[in-house]
């Protein structure tokens, strides 16, 4: 079932200079989204990646109904998120990085109570969900504190709880772990992984944190200058264009272990340590079997291609391996089990 359907959506922003210089400066236009099409199924966890200014946040705002596209259509669970804003709001949950939806002067617990009233949650359901969220995010230690006095980590956890309190079928998370310490970050990730496991929620994660993406997102959509460059699995992205991992093999001393083997290129031989680059299409299991079959091997250490390295080269302008701009969008990845 399709949860989010974005079809040929474009959005431009017209920027005007300050009043005094308006006559001298021509009006500038920025293309934030350029004919973007995207489908996200129920139960999918999608990482929406791209450089600053690539159009990620604009796309999220269009999908949440905050922005009206200049052209194209958006449907979230069959609703136009802008025209059916109130009905759509009942289906979605949203967090926007460090912007809180808690009421600043009230205790966090009061904010949850207000959201309970807005979403019409029966009290027993509200109490049960708060207990569940407390178990995962550890909220009860500070939910009697005014939002203004919460630390960043506490506030982010409260905001995440606020976003999922009504069990939305579609969740938009814009930089949910920005500025968090490792402990809180792992709590947030665990909570999101729990949600994903239910298979009920379509989740869109916008982030610059590749660890979040690698840990959570089976599918990645990469955006650049308002155009989708890539849409596929994490494995597709790290392996695209023949990118391969390296293998470090420790050989037994004087054992005369394998030096050259089919399926990999020897990069370096340093005493008993050999480093190989896997040939495209050669799997780790297959190459390990060859190594072990050759004998004289003490240990094998596979190191995959890091998403960060791939993104760095793409952001630096190397689109060649993605097909070059404007890139054809690869077929959507199947929904995770």
């Amino acid at each position: 079932m399709t949860a989010i359907e974005v079809r040929e959506v474009s959005k431009r922003f017209r920027l005007r200079g300050p009043l005094l210089r308006r006559g001298r400066q021509p009006r500038r236009e920025t293309v934030a989204l350029d004919r973007v099409s995207l489908e996200i199924g129920a139960g999918e966890f999608v990482g929406l990646l791209g450089q600053n200014g690539a159009g990620k946040s604009t796309l999220v705002r269009v999908m949440t109904g905050l922005l009206v596209p200049d052209s194209g259509t958006v449907r979230v669970l069959g609703l136009d998120p802008n025209r059916d804003q109130v009905r759509n709001a009942a289906n979605i949950g949203v967090t926007f990085g460090q912007r809180t939806q808690l009421w600043w002067d009230l205790r966090a617990r009061d904010s949850f109570g207000i959201l309970r009233d807005m979403y019409g949650l029966p009290e027993p359901v509200f109490v049960r969900r708060m207990r569940e969220l407390d178990d995962v995010l550890g909220l009860s230690g500070f939910w009697d504190t005014q939002a203004r006095h919460l630390s960043l980590g506490q506030r982010v956890r409260c905001d995440l709880a606020a976003a999922v309190l009504h069990r939305p079928l579609v969740l938009f998370l814009d930089e949910p772990t920005i500025g968090l310490d490792v402990l809180v970050r792992s709590q947030v990730r665990a909570m999101l992984a729990d949600l994903a496991r239910t298979g009920d929620h379509a989740i869109v994660l916008t982030t610059h944190d590749v660890d979040d993406v690698e840990a959570l997102c089976p599918r990645i959509v990469l955006i650049d200058r308002g155009r989708p460059l890539f849409d596929g699995t994490l494995a597709d992205l790290t392996g695209i264009g023949g990118r391969s991992g390296t293998v470090t093999v420790e050989l037994t001393a004087g054992g005369g272990g394998p030096v050259r083997l089919p399926g990999a290129r020897l990069l370096e031989l340093d005493g008993v340590r050999a480093t190989y680059a896997l040939d495209p299409g050669v799997g780790q299991e297959e190459f390990a079997a060859r190594l072990l079959g050759a004998g004289g091997v003490r240990s094998i250490d596979f190191e995959g291609v890091r998403l960060e390295d791939v993104l760095r080269s793409v952001y630096a302008g190397d689109h060649s391996r993605l097909g070059g701009p404007p890139a054809p969008v690869l077929p959507a990845a199947p929904a995770p089990p």
Binding site: T64, L66, Q85, A89, V94, R99, Y119
Partner: peptide
């Protein structure tokens, strides 16, 4: 003084939430 106004919410960016809840 509570500051719940369009102006303050636009400045801190949280105005978005006013449009993302099932109460207009």
């Amino acid at each position: 003084a509570t500051g719940e106004s369009v102006k303050t919410r636009i400045l801190d960016g949280s105005i978005a939430y006013w449009f993302l809840r099932p109460v207009s």
